[in-house]
Design a protein around this nucleic acid. Structure first.
Lengths: 96, 96
DNA sequence: TGAATATATGAGCAAGTGTTCATATATTAC
DNA sequence: GTAATATATGAACACTTGCTCATATATTCA
């Protein structure tokens, strides 16, 4: 296996993206399609600020993508690996 | 998708297991086979205490299993979902 | 232009995490 | 029995994280 320290860190960072319930629900919503910050905030019952902060992190990891339309910003998943990880994790939680 | 809050939390907890570089390297080692705490500590250049603390968490999540032999305790993966998640994550990191 | 709306950002803080260090427990050897 | 070894555990502490609140930026509309 011989995992370098760098890759261990990168792996940990990737899994950190899904290591918080708010982000898990956020990504779960984005799996249905792109969504604006305010819609996400409403669905998740979080403030728009909190959602925006989380999206920033996910954006920096290139896990979500932003599309600006007028004064709204629509986010979508920028990576199908993440939805695959998500689905596999969900499978484990449900029938593990 | 309709993710309940409970499942979001459980998913987040699962991914949290891999959200730290030490644990990632620990699990990576255990993918090669069972290993004692002291061997793990030596390989990872961590104290045995730190390794033991981490293993405790993984044990509580049923991700690793302990087998006692004399005064040594050998740990192994207790869940193939985790190695699958690991491999998928590594794939993303390497050719994402 | 100025007001209203949508999102982003920075500071601050409470809660959580991963480590170290000291100590406890369990097993083996003498 | 005592000493030595392997692991586990609890407390303490530095560091990180995710939030709120205030403020900034960008866009639309009057």
């Amino acid at each position: 296996m011989k995992l370098t320290e760098l890759k261990a860190i990168q792996l940990a960072e990737l899994f950190s993206a899904l290591s918080d319930a708010s982000r898990v629900r956020l990504i779960s919503l984005l799996m249905e399609g792109e969504m604006s910050v305010s819609t996400l905030a409403e669905e998740l019952k979080m403030t728009e600020s909190a959602v925006s902060h989380q999206l920033r992190g996910l954006r920096q990891m290139h896990l979500v993508r932003a599309r600006k339309d007028g004064r709204q910003v629509f986010y979508s998943l920028d990576d199908d690996h993440v939805s695959k990880l998500f689905s596999m994790g969900l499978d484990h939680v449900e029938h593990g």
